[in-house]
Design a protein around this nucleic acid. Structure first.
Lengths: 222, 222
DNA sequence: CTATTTTTTACGGATTCCCGTAAGGAAAAA
DNA sequence: TTTTTCCTTACGGGAATCCGTAAAAAATAG
């Protein structure tokens, strides 16, 4: 079994249960941080001391509070960790269940397992830890039913996200066009942007822009 | 201390910690349900058996799964419970931290305490349970800083929420007007609704409807 | 009951969105 | 090079919004 595991989870009510699982699996060294920043520091320190972690279990969303944070989400933490310790195994344990987001975690951030917090997530988490240790790939907790081959979701790219972001900030087509020009993002004609928004609307079955943004918010795209 | 407590919480990773707190407080009877519907049934049954609960600790959001549910949220559960056992003490334990929502819980649903899930929420929860037992009123976990006297939020009423909801579902002004007429909500003229939306836009400093809905989503109003 | 104020509704012009069509341009294929 | 195809941009008409003004209705005051 893993020798040294780091848990990044802000909610104390949850981290208790996660640590319990690790104890039952007889992991000798279990550390727990409530802030992403602390997580990165611990991982760097462990590397320097030549006692690196071999597993990271992290949440995605962390509450912001009085403390100023550099890394504010699990995504950012993983991204930063990948810079310093590429081979570290990573399990995400989060409430998020949007396939778009989860796909991104596997494909762009290279996580090893995703466990969705739910009614039987503790046993799922245990399975994921054991599977990860056996070098299984792309482990998904069983309550998530989508397929990785689902084409539709791959089509939404960062370009679309940019449009949705600006829309949600009150920009009109012309503003977005100008913004894209100044950031040299192409295509940037109002027509092209308009067309892309239309694609998004049909894809998400949205009646209009207002509806579209509401849906995008629900999906956690913005 | 309380004699019989019901915990309604779908996430197993959290309910473990909540039950632990109750055990430490030496509550003799602790029951736990993962679905709102089960919670209501248990409360009704306990009343019939003349062994009623004296405290309910509930989450707000419950994941939906294969099982068909009647009550889908903590709000609905509390509302239903108020019908059958008005005097039951109620503590909400949730991640939600939007003042508007929390105010509503105290004022319209008559909860006794609100504890926000966070980095030190277990100790907060314990305090809230003890405070509720001592008949303290409107207990708020200390990481929530808003005041109940905060005027701004009182101005937004359920009428506004209805508009925002329909907008976020892709309704246009005329649709909303018709919907309001069929539900006999007044005012229901397109002009009046338009005017109200404008008020919301100035209040939230939104450039347009799209922006407004994005903000409303962020505030948890819809 | 009348006067005053407030609320609701109606209307109109400017702007933006919405949606289809088509022209222009670049890359790939012939 | 020419043709084809795909992508980007342009244009236009109708729908919905945005925003100001004003009439109608309702509530309040005297």
């Amino acid at each position: 079994m893993f020798k040294k595991v780091l848990v990044a989870e802000d909610l104390d009510s949850i981290s208790i249960a996660v640590v319990q699982v690790l104890e039952e699996l007889e992991v000798p060294t279990i550390h727990h941080v409530k802030y992403c920043d602390d997580g990165l520091i611990k991982i760097k320190k462990a590397l320097v001391d030549n006692e690196p972690y071999d597993l990271l279990i992290t949440d995605l969303s962390f509450k912001s509070d009085h403390r100023a944070s550099n890394l504010t989400s699990g995504d950012e933490l993983i991204d930063a960790v990948n810079e310093v310790q590429k081979d570290l195994k990573k399990i995400v344990f989060s409430i998020e269940d949007k396939s778009y987001r989860i796909k991104m975690l596997f494909n762009e951030l290279g996580i090893n397992a995703y466990v969705s917090k739910g009614r039987n997530s503790i046993i799922e988490l245990r399975n994921a830890i054991q599977g990860t240790f056996r070098n299984e790939e792309k482990i998904l907790s069983s309550d998530l039913s989508f397929s990785f081959n689902d084409k539709a979701l791959i089509e939404i790219e960062s370009y679309d996200i940019s449009i949705l972001k600006l829309l949600s900030q009150g920009y009109i087509l012309e503003n977005i066009s100008n913004e894209f020009k100044s950031m040299s993002i192409t295509p940037n004609g109002t027509s092209s942007i308009e067309k892309r928004i239309n694609k998004l609307k049909t894809y998400f079955k949205a009646n209009n822009n207002v509806h579209l943004i509401a849906i995008a918010k629900d999906f956690g795209l913005v």
